[in-house]
Design a protein around this nucleic acid. Structure first.
Length: 393
DNA sequence: AACAGGGGCAACCGCTTGCCG
DNA sequence: TCGGCAAGCGGTTGCCCCTGT
């Protein structure tokens, strides 16, 4: 069955011959492709317009990069896929010269198998159940909240011990690696939240994160942890994002997966996708006073590469760090400005951590591509929560 | 040398989205 | 608002080539 657009025509199918390629390239180079349906006719090809378009986009475009994927490209694919899921076109935008088809094929033929071989679910990037059992020696356990993938590839379990396992893969982009100092530290202090994971909120537009204090007792009955004012199992953790450039503010309730925003557009500009949505749905803030170390427990749909470690105002004693934490280089702390300060919010200027707009093209593009909270299934039940988030705005 | 099986990749299919009249 | 058309996109198919027997 041919394309509906070319049912009436007798069109050739299958592999393209060099002659056909040449005709198409000549025509498109000379005349462009304002209307693909007209291209085969004018180029003298017995193909349908759709086929011509595909051939041009995937193989004949002059700006295409052919050949095997580099290690960095592979990392980028994994990182972005973790957040966006199977949105190949979006992923391909982060890889100049690569097409969605190429990325998709590479994923299916190579990366997917690697992840599975390493005990990771290629859909969610979580550890597969069998691997969790191996790591923890017991079945599903609520306390086993975080399987942490650190930038060095090590896995830390709840106890905070960084497993001395072979890194399943490198989860951080080179640019990220350059932005962090990795610190290996001892066991977390008692007041630390269980299973702190690390996430990364990067917004090259100059996002401000505000951690609003919610001191409600956990609905689940968990007691408030001393020195742990941001943990709120019941009421959720509200996280505010302010775009310094746009002057807009968005807040998110990590536990309840709701949000409010002064701007619909800005709310829609939040990072989205499976990784973020699922991770945020269970994010667990830990901003220990005086330490300024923010961690998050990320459970299902964990964004292994979404690491955020904030710095502290004072040089951080190693024992004050969350175990295995990746520590960002010093950034400017805004002790709470305007209404945020009035509300007792600790404002953290994240922007400088990442060097502002010049941080990495990847992150900027990623944030753009994450324009809507519209996770595409990705295997997570909380994907729609972010869709709901849009409606909540 | 011949054959089978598997992997990788190019191309196709069909659904969705966006635009325009 | 609706319908038609074209483009975009992700999933799937099928061919080709490589490798092992």
């Amino acid at each position: 069955m041919g394309h509906h657009c070319c049912n009436k025509q007798k069109v050739k199918r299958g592999l393209w011959s060099p002659e056909e390629d040449e005709r198409l390239v000549k025509y498109v180079t000379a005349h462009g492709h304002s209307c693909w349906s007209a291209v085969p006719k004018h180029a003298g090809l017995q193909r349908c317009g759709k086929s011509c378009r595909l051939r041009w986009i995937n193989y004949l475009r002059p700006d295409l990069k052919r050949g095997t994927f580099s290690e960095q490209e592979e990392r980028t694919i994994i990182d972005v896929h973790r957040i966006l899921g199977n949105r190949w076109a979006q992923i391909a935008k982060h890889l100049p010269g690569r097409t969605d088809n190429e990325v998709k094929n590479f994923w299916n033929s190579c990366i997917k198998k690697k992840l599975i071989a390493q005990g990771l679910d290629p859909k969610t990037h979580n550890l597969l159940p069998a691997s969790k059992t191996l790591l923890h020696g017991n079945g599903p356990n609520p306390s086993n909240r975080a399987h942490q993938f650190h930038s060095n590839g090590a896995i830390a379990n709840d106890g905070g011990a960084v497993a001395a396992t072979t890194p399943p893969f490198t989860i951080s982009s080179p640019t990220k690696a350059a932005a962090y100092d990795t610190v290996t530290v001892g066991p977390p202090p008692p007041q630390m939240a269980p299973a702190p994971a690390i996430y990364d909120v990067r917004n090259t537009a100059g996002m401000l994160m505000g951690h609003e204090h919610h001191d409600q007792q956990a609905a689940a009955g968990a007691e408030a942890i001393p020195g742990y004012p941001y943990t709120d199992n019941g009421g959720g953790v509200l996280m505010s994002f302010r775009d310094q450039n746009a002057g807009l503010q968005t807040s998110m309730d990590f536990m309840n997966v709701s949000s409010s925003s002064s701007s619909m557009d800005h709310a829609a500009g939040m990072p989205n996708g499976n990784g973020f949505s699922q991770a945020m749905g269970t994010a667990f803030m830990d901003v220990t006073p005086g330490m300024w170390s923010t961690t998050a427990v990320v459970e299902r749909g964990m964004c292994a590469g979404i690491e955020v470690a904030q710095q502290q105002q004072q040089p951080l004693p190693p024992q004050g760090l969350v175990h295995g934490e990746v520590v960002a280089r010093p950034i400017v702390m805004n002790g709470g400005a305007g209404a945020a300060a009035d509300k007792g919010m600790d404002m953290v200027d994240v922007s400088s951590v990442y060097g502002g707009a010049g941080a990495t093209a990847f992150d900027l593009e990623l944030m753009e591509s994450c324009g809507l909270f519209c996770g595409s299934g990705g295997g997570g039940s909380t994907g729609n929560a972010m869709e709901q988030l849009q409606w909540d705005c």
